[in-house]
C-alpha cells in the first residue's frame, strides 16, 4: 500500500511541478507572443493554474503525510545507520519548507484571483516563485531519497 501511495505521491508531484513552473514563469517572466517552445512556456494564462496547483499541493502534502510513518521507520533508520547525514538533512529541510509553503497557499490563491489586480503583481510573482522553489526542491530531494538504497546501498 505504501508503494502505491508513494507512486501516486510522485505522480501528483510531477503534475504540480509542471503547473507551478508554468505559473511562476507566467508571473515572473511573462511573454505575450508564442513563438518558440520556451516563449510559449512563459506565455500561459497563469491564473488558470491556481486552483489546480492548490489542490495538487494539498494532495501531495496529504499523500506525503500518509507515507511519512513508513519513511520514519525504515528509510530514516537506514540513513542514520549508514551515516548518510547529508541525505537525511535535505529531507528535514524539505519537511519544513513544504509546511511553510502550506501556510502561504491562501495568499497564493488570493493574489491570483481573477480579475488580476495589478497592485498584487509583485506579491504574485514572489509567492509563486517561492512555492515553485519549494516544489522543485522537494521533488528532487524526494526523488533522490526514493532511490537512496540504489545509489548508496550495498
Amino acid at each position: 500500500m505504501t508503494t502505491v501511495l508513494l507512486i501516486v505521491h510522485a505522480l501528483v508531484a510531477v503534475a504540480l511541478i509542471g503547473g507551478i513552473t508554468h505559473q511562476a514563469f507566467a508571473a515572473c517572466w511573462p511573454a505575450r507572443r508564442k513563438e518558440g517552445f520556451f516563449t510559449s512556456f512563459r506565455a500561459v494564462a497563469g491564473a488558470r493554474y491556481t486552483n489546480a496547483n492548490v489542490v495538487l499541493y494539498l494532495a501531495a502534502v496529504v499523500l506525503g503525510a500518509l507515507i511519512y510513518p513508513a519513511y520514519r521507520l525504515s528509510v530514516r533508520t537506514y540513513l542514520e545507520s549508514a551515516r548518510l547525514w547529508s541525505y537525511n538533512g535535505p529531507f528535514e529541510v524539505k519537511e519544513q519548507f513544504v509546511t511553510v509553503g502550506l501556510g502561504m497557499l491562501p495568499l497564493f490563491w488570493w493574489v491570483w484571483r481573477e480579475p488580476l489586480d495589478p497592485a498584487k503583481a509583485g506579491a504574485r510573482a514572489a509567492v509563486t516563485a517561492i512555492l515553485c522553489f519549494i516544489v522543485w526542491y522537494s521533488f528532487v530531494v524526494g526523488h533522490v531519497l526514493n532511490n537512496i538504497r540504489g545509489l548508496f546501498g550495498q
Binding site: 538533512g89 529541510v93 519544513q96 519548507f97 511553510v100 502561504m104 493574489v111 506579491a123 509567492v127 517561492i130
Partner: peptide, 19 residues
C-alpha cells in the same frame, strides 16, 4: 502583502541555518 512572503522566506532561511 509582503508580510505573507518575506516572513516565510526568512523562516525558510532560518530553518536551513538551524538544520
Amino acid at each position: 502583502l509582503w508580510l505573507g512572503w518575506v516572513i516565510p522566506l526568512i523562516v525558510m532561511v532560518v530553518f536551513v541555518y538551524l538544520l
